[in-house]
Write a protein that binds this DNA or RNA. Sequence first.
DNA 1: TTGTAGGCGTTATCAG
DNA 2: CTGATAACGCCTACAA
Lengths: 340, 340
Amino acid sequence: MLKRQITLKDIAKELDVSISTVSKALKNSDEISRDTKEKVQAFAKLYNYKPNNIAISLKNKRTKNIGVIVPDIVHYFFTTVVRGIENFANEKGYNVIVCLSNESFDKEVINMEMLANGSIDGFIMSLSAGTEKNNDFNHLREVTDQGIPLVLFDRVTNEIECDKVVIDDTLGAYLATKKLLEEGRKKIALLTTEDFFSVSRNRNLGYKKALEDFGMELNPDHVLKLPYMDIDEERISSFLKRVSPDGVLSANEIFGIYGMRVLQKLGFEVPKDVSVIGFTDGLLAKHANPPVTAVAQHGEKMGELAAKMLIERVENDYDVPNYQTKILEPTLIERDSTNN
Amino acid sequence: MLKRQITLKDIAKELDVSISTVSKALKNSDEISRDTKEKVQAFAKLYNYKPNNIAISLKNKRTKNIGVIVPDIVHYFFTTVVRGIENFANEKGYNVIVCLSNESFDKEVINMEMLANGSIDGFIMSLSAGTEKNNDFNHLREVTDQGIPLVLFDRVTNEIECDKVVIDDTLGAYLATKKLLEEGRKKIALLTTEDFFSVSRNRNLGYKKALEDFGMELNPDHVLKLPYMDIDEERISSFLKRVSPDGVLSANEIFGIYGMRVLQKLGFEVPKDVSVIGFTDGLLAKHANPPVTAVAQHGEKMGELAAKMLIERVENDYDVPNYQTKILEPTLIERDSTNN
DNA sequence: TTGTAGGCGTTATCAG
DNA sequence: CTGATAACGCCTACAA
């Protein structure tokens, strides 16, 4: 069934020359006579010769593969980051191996180990919820100790020294909260996740800071911290019912969208009675009714940057690491869920 | 910088035994004495020996990698298929290399060639818009001619003989249209894409069939066929304004969501004045206001099935191909954008 | 201008 | 029980 791909050896035998002659001829080396080169190249094209990547990888100790491990691929943000990585990497001749940790520590570890045995030249990843919760980064350390380049994005940790790309989450939340405050909102609810998520921690901080800058103090009763990014319908709706906010900031796309619908069902008009802003400028925000003002995280750019940083590491064997953390600026995209 | 991973050779030298002894010892071969095995295994663990996958791939002519080429990763459906593939493949010890064709014929070809040189054991893919439009499948044929297993899903073609997984798009559209008709809707608009998309062709067919079964005939004025899956705000809104439908069927998630908002802005109430049903039971449909009744395509299952079929081919070298086309049943998920 | 030989890391066969 | 050898497909320094 599997018609074996033709190899240098096959060509050599067929044309009655040596393997190295064939190899050189195909590379247009000028060690080889025009005659021989033409003969070999013609034959190779005729039989559709393609060098075997695996053999080349073994020889070069370079696979031209990048391993990407992300918590999931359903949420818009990760999706766009993956797209950014893909774009840049393909441009540079790299393939992208995508693995989903599914927010699970165990699966993240398994995936890393699966890829760390020579399958890839480097990793780009965002920590799973499980990993952030466990606060266990040994699998990352093993990888970096082996000298495999690693770039963390979005959900990062100080425990590991490596290149990183994040957005300024604190600033993003600050800008959003400020916007609500400037609209005159007094009771701003925060829908977020627990502080063990590095991004949530920072977003929660930005929220607090903005309140303080406007002479208000954070009321814990106005904050709902859920353990995961999944919607807990019960808790979100009872929270909003209780708080009855005139402004909502959501630390992710999905809580905000869901929260807005809950409020609408309770009779609130958006943005007349309550303004809503959410993190992630995704399809949900864009197509909600009304469209939701959002903090754009520039995922695609983030992915490109991460890929760029990684490939740079892979291709240049610096002996002084000099790790960088790039911080992108979030942008507030104003839509109809807030006043303007 | 890059601390070379330890190899069999290193262990052999260090322990003063032969490479093959080490290899066997690590495999717990009973050709080797208990003593030697223990010594070798201890040493290997201590120095964190991991067999080099690339070398193994070269030897076995099996990479344990699956190449997945999809048009994009932003739309919910493809996202879920990729997740299904990932799940099943990882379970079986395979990595998934994801490439995005970005709906472009050229990029699809480039990606295939990139992977077809030994990097993967088989392909799972869904045709790009460009490919369906060009009607050019030579890159697929080259791959299958080489004996590389290929599974097509969703956007497939009869031109290529290989395993396929699809849903019954005609039935899906039929069920949706029937639902609208049974509600008493008389003027059902169809938002769809051009017929060169295999899926659209079938969905358009199902729409027509349902109308006919209810004694109505298709009115071309009630159908808007756009060239791509991107929202053309201008055309969609002027179309809906003109038609002023009491029912809308959308052949994808995004047109339906957008169309519903257009109608709402025009003063239509959903579902009082107009019912809306869209293909793809995704986040947009689920979180729209009101939530949209949708044709579920069971992407995750589709992905798992595709992966299963592919891995079966990869691992068993059938000499009679006996290609299969699996057809999944779509499900109508009823929500508040239709009456019940 | 062409060919030989060795190596990338692993495994399998066969000899000792 | 252990080891030498060849092979997977390619590349390259060196020899002829």
